[in-house]
Design a protein around this nucleic acid. Sequence first.
DNA 1: ATTATTGTATTAGGTGCTTAATACAGTAAT
DNA 2: ATTACTGTATTAAGCACCTAATACAATAAT
Lengths: 122, 122
Amino acid sequence: MESFQNTQPIYLQIMNLIKKQIATSVFNPGQLLESVRELAMIYQVNPNTVQRALSELEREGLVRSERTVGRYITKDEAAIAQLHQNLVDEATSTYINNVLELHLSPEEIITTVKNRLKGDNT
Amino acid sequence: MESFQNTQPIYLQIMNLIKKQIATSVFNPGQLLESVRELAMIYQVNPNTVQRALSELEREGLVRSERTVGRYITKDEAAIAQLHQNLVDEATSTYINNVLELHLSPEEIITTVKNRLKGDNT
DNA sequence: ATTATTGTATTAGGTGCTTAATACAGTAAT
DNA sequence: ATTACTGTATTAAGCACCTAATACAATAAT
């Protein structure tokens, strides 16, 4: 049960979602993933779209497929730690670039983040 | 002369680009904008794509078109200030949500941002 | 052996985005 | 008046993404 934006390909959004779940141990190393058809039901999308997302994740080495059994999350915990770090770094870089382009000073950026964390505005 | 991602519609990327330029006074209030055909040359895209982006910006009240003269940036400086604030808020919300989902604590978020600002990693 | 599940592949159709090629009406300058 | 520029509109084509409907080979459980 997930909803997706229409401004970005769904298969990319699913990839990012699963990456986050791997990086935060929602899926544990070596764990068997839900089947393509199950995930398609959960996400309310076509099985082909899930297949596309998982194939890309496999190409990146984060999951591997056992042809008639299912898909497993990688056991490589170092790779998972690296994934987590990359996701944090990428998000941070994107954000800092954005607000620098909006002419915020480093001090203003810090206070902006602090204020948002205080207010807990989700 | 701009390059765009292929994961998001170009007209949306152009909208965001122009919004930033309005919010940071690259374009001043009331200023005449480059023509559709000029912008298409600059961005290396089809005039129709620029037209689409500018139409949406007009719908949001940020530019207005003088039918056979050109397009003007809004004179409403309060609206521009509001635009700037909205862009900052939206970027910050998106970022905080992202890193919270990655299980970073508020303290870790602050130090991550500070470190990135120190390192000046663009 | 049969049944249900797995990943994978194929075909067809629909939609949105982008490009290309024109065209038109109105303004400004010569 | 002519010329060159505006925004705007239309048509056709191509492409990526998504869906729907199947199908197949291999595994696991009964």
